[in-house]
Design a protein around this nucleic acid. Structure first.
Lengths: 191, 191
DNA sequence: ACCTGAACACCGTTCAAGT
DNA sequence: ACCTGAACACCGTTCAAGT
């Protein structure tokens, strides 16, 4: 009898793991580091999570909810066109503030995931182009946003002779917004 | 005297490493596997490459050249607008055929890299929107293409109730093309 | 000059043993 | 019921020793 006292909890472990991912990136997260951070030994982690992947999935799910909330707050009380610009800004903002967490949202081996396609995005885009093109248009803007912030995080926009990333971002969002609205008017025919 | 015979070469090692990356992905590439594939022991690899990262960089540089050539061939002898559609199709084609190689092109720790922004893309886009917006427009289409193929490779387009990825891709390229051409006419003012 | 086995410091993970 | 040390099969990398 007198079973061993619990020195930690799922919540503690999740919190520590999230902090370590933020600091060292997903690839830099080791089970021994997580264990150290909560005051136990690595093997004990397997009492709470099946393996490293399951732990990362739990961190990912938590981060996904934060990300969605961040986007939802940004578009609140805005007209569809204005909402898309706000959404884009908030999206980029999150990725720049929490690059390692953003990348965690897109780890393919942690499937199933929604990546960046949140319900908020679908609603905003549907308001812009109507239901007929909602799916394709959502993919268009999602792909652009994901691509832009990924390339920006990778330092692909730091070469000499290139204008500011801010300017390219604003221009691109404007271009896509105009293109989307136009496709709604014309029915989106392709030549 | 009688120095040890060379059992392999930089070229052999590169070829083996590229094949292993294609098969197992970047993360699945181990120095011992590469060594086995060329018939030597892992420590001998360090006579030819400083470390795993240097080897991956060499594979990346080779892949980058192939990718650029693939895009250049696709846009040859096409008008700017048609060239952009061809470019987009070739881009997606490469990523689908060689997903692990495409991902290798975007490994941030292997910097400096150009990622997917090849000279071909810049030329095609410049022909469309003029030199004033060439940089921002190139980033717009590059970001979309990178985001789309990344999300497609990650399986984010396989959910139920969603139309074909082909359709979303064609729609998106059309939308962005229209938006870009429009920005060239109007001067790209934002609201 | 190139190759080798042994070794080091790391991983994720398992498991028998403790309380 | 939870924690532990020891161990296993992997890593990348170094290095002295061989030819």
């Amino acid at each position: 009898m007198s079973p061993a006292l619990a020195k930690t909890s799922e919540k503690d472990i999740l919190t520590a793991a999230r902090r370590l991912v933020r600091q060292n990136g997903v690839e830099g997260l080791s089970m021994r580091d997580v264990a150290d951070a909560v005051g136990i030994r690595a093997p004990s982690l397997y009492k709470r999570f099946d393996n490293r992947e399951a732990l990362l999935r739990a961190v990912r799910d938590q981060a996904q909810a934060q990300f969605d909330g961040h986007l939802a707050a940004a578009v609140k009380d805005h007209s569809p066109a204005h909402a898309l610009t706000k959404l884009a800004g908030a999206y980029r903002d999150f990725a720049r503030r929490r690059p390692a967490i953003y990348r965690l949202l897109h780890r393919p081996e942690l499937a199933p995931a929604r990546g960046n396609v949140s319900g908020v995005t679908i609603q905003v885009v549907s308001g812009l182009v109507g239901t007929a093109h909602a799916d394709a248009a959502t993919r268009c803007i999602s792909a652009f946003l994901h691509g832009f912030v990924s390339m920006e995080m990778d330092g692909l926009y730091s070469g000499p002779g290139s204008a500011s990333a801010d300017e390219a971002f604003a221009y691109s969002v404007y271009v896509i917004l105009q293109g989307l609205v136009n496709s709604a008017d014309s029915g989106g025919g392709q030549s």
